[in-house]
Computed example of a mutant assay.
Amino acid sequence: MPHIIVKLWPGKSEQQKQQLADAITKDVTRVFGYGEESVSVAMEEIDAKDWAEKVYRPDIVGHVERLYKKPDYAM
């Protein structure tokens, strides 16, 4: 079942994070045909100063073959 982890900088409100989780859940159920009970969404806050080391290099550059949407920038 899909488990989605959203990595983001700190500073978004709980309401914003919940809205994003709800939108992701809605789209996953629509596109994949799963029930909402099968989807989980987590938020992982990463400080901007740690972004390159903890996200960009290992998750983006290190696994470019898994990306379906690439960032429009390079670090």
Rank of each mutant, 00 (worst) to 15 (best):
S38M: 12
L8N: 13
E36A: 14
I4L: 07
I60M: 00
V61G: 00
E45S: 09
I46N: 04
R30E: 14
K54N: 03
A52H: 07
K26F: 10
I24K: 06
E36L: 01
H63Q: 14
K70E: 10
R57Q: 11
V64Y: 06
T29A: 15
D59I: 00
I24E: 06
K70L: 11
V61D: 02
E44R: 14
D27A: 13
E36C: 00
F32N: 03
Q15L: 13
V6K: 00
E45N: 07
R30A: 15
H63R: 15
S40H: 10
I46H: 07
V55I: 11
L20V: 10
E37R: 13
E44V: 15
Q15M: 10
V31I: 15
L67C: 01
A21F: 01
E36M: 07
E37H: 12
K12M: 12
I24D: 08
H63T: 11
Q19T: 10
E45P: 04
S38G: 06
R30P: 05
E53Y: 05
Y56L: 01
E14Q: 13
D47T: 06
P10F: 05
K12S: 12
W51T: 02
V31E: 10
Q16P: 09
Q19K: 12
D59Y: 02
S38L: 09
D22I: 06
Y34D: 03
W51Q: 01
D22K: 13
K12G: 11
V41T: 06
A52I: 10
R30V: 10
D50C: 07
Q19F: 02
A42F: 04
V39T: 08
K26W: 00
I46K: 04
K54R: 12
E14Y: 00
I24M: 06
K54V: 02
T25H: 05
D72Q: 13
E45R: 04
K17V: 07
A74T: 14
I60N: 00
P2M: 06
S40R: 15
V61F: 01
L67T: 02
P58Y: 03
K54M: 06
G35K: 08
E45Y: 06
D47M: 03
P71Y: 04
V6C: 06
T25D: 09
I46F: 04
D22F: 03
K26E: 15
K7V: 02
L20F: 06
A52S: 10
I5M: 01
L20K: 05
T25L: 09
I5D: 00
P58C: 04
M43H: 13
D47K: 11
P2Y: 04
D72W: 10
V39I: 14
E36Y: 01
D47G: 00
D50Q: 09
D22L: 07
G11Q: 08
V55H: 03
E14I: 05
V39M: 08
Y68N: 10
E45A: 06
E36T: 08
